[in-house]
Simulated scan of single mutants.
Amino acid sequence: MIFLDAAATTPVRREVLDAMWPYLTGEFGNPSSHHTLGEAAATALADARRTVAAVLGCRAGEVTFTAGGTEADNLAVKGIAVARQAADPQLNRVVISAVEHPAVEESARYLERFHGFIIDVVPVDGTGQVTPEAFQKVLTPETAVATVMYANNEVGTVQPIAELAALTHELGIPFHTDAVQAAGWLPLDTKALGVDAMSISGHKLGAPKGCGVLFARGRTKLEPLIHGGGQERGRRSGTENVAGAVGLATALTLAYAGQEEQRRRVTALRDTFISAVLGGVPGAVLTGHPSVRLPSVASFCFPGTSGESVLLELERLGVVCSSGSACAAGSDAPSPVLTALGVAPEVAQTAVRFSFDATVTEAELAAAAAAVESAVGRVRALGA
């Protein structure tokens, strides 16, 4: 099997399992307990927090461990908006882009339904980018929070986050970015990016599912979603997942060891793969920005096919990939991301996404490109 669905999830790295193992077995204490087992857990949690902070270029106290990227997005968007509106009721608008992950968009819709917020949606161009000019037009003095994802999970387009954050700061508006797909591939220095909040998920990096991080700058007001014992400096109550935090910190460190070389290698392989698919499949269309995109994502539409039929044929040939976001599994509607790019709905339903982790090889992608040519040809021949 050639696994090319790393944007959905990645296998847990052995080094991560080894780092987690003590906290799943003998060192099982609650980090809030004042005894030896509890203190050992608290030390491990603090070490993990410092490790994550070092990668993000922030203070350890600005790192909140969550149950994943979705919770981190919810905490950022809802938590910042509600906290700012409580301080100033006139702050009743939320800015999102047209290509956000459902965790961000649905958080904004919640604020609209239950807290009276108005959602301002920034359009994207045909490559999936938010231009600074379009972004600036929707910012108002009433904007409580603005959020634009760092890199898109379906088409891989990377956004000019530092430029967008600078525009919000001119108006005193906090800026959040969903960096779930960017983590491991793009710089995460929060000071250089200028972001006030940033979400990361462990299972995209070789850590287990169920662990994530929200960076929130110390001065950023944030209303917690989960109330209780006041863990995570009051931002996220509940007994901490110590093993998950250790695993995420380990995976994040490993992802950024030799990251520049890794990114160059995978980018070159991605470009060769894209050329092979476009050259081998008549009518194939690359979606997303042609060059300002994640090294790890190549996404196409294959007009005259059904994307789901192509996926099934590819799996029969030993290639596992996706038709888009795993969070939209089971939906037969055209991707909102692709339609936001201006792709016709009937063409959007032919989409297939290939996404790689850092272990992908030239031979795997060459075999996958040949399989794509065969699969699309067969589906077209059968009229499926």
Rank of each mutant, 00 (worst) to 15 (best):
A19D: 02
T220C: 11
T43E: 14
H101N: 11
I226C: 15
L286C: 08
A245S: 11
E112F: 12
Y256T: 06
L75N: 08
V77Y: 01
A207F: 00
G212D: 07
G280L: 12
T190E: 04
G61R: 10
L164P: 07
A197S: 12
L317A: 14
V376T: 09
E106W: 13
N30H: 13
A326K: 10
E39N: 13
N152K: 02
R217Q: 14
Q181S: 13
P31M: 10
V121Y: 06
A367M: 12
R113H: 10
G229H: 14
K221I: 07
V246D: 03
F215L: 05
W185L: 06
P345C: 03
L164S: 06
T190A: 13
P141E: 09
Y150L: 02
L382T: 04
V122H: 09
R13S: 09
T361G: 04
R316F: 06
A368V: 09
E260M: 13
A371R: 01
A53M: 07
G202F: 02
A192H: 01
A103I: 11
A146R: 08
S325H: 14
V95M: 02
L254R: 11
P31Y: 11
K191R: 15
Q181I: 12
A284R: 03
S275P: 04
T287R: 14
G57M: 04
N74H: 15
H203V: 01
G172V: 06
V376P: 08
R265I: 08
I119Q: 03
L75R: 07
G69L: 08
G342T: 04
E364K: 08
E105G: 01
L171P: 06
E362Q: 15
L205C: 07
A368L: 11
P208Y: 08
R265L: 11
D73N: 15
E163H: 09
I2E: 04
L24C: 12
G61L: 03
A134Q: 10
T350H: 09
A54R: 15
R217L: 03
L278V: 03
G247K: 03
G238I: 05
I274N: 09
H176K: 04
A19K: 02
A72H: 02
A384D: 15
E163P: 02
S33N: 12
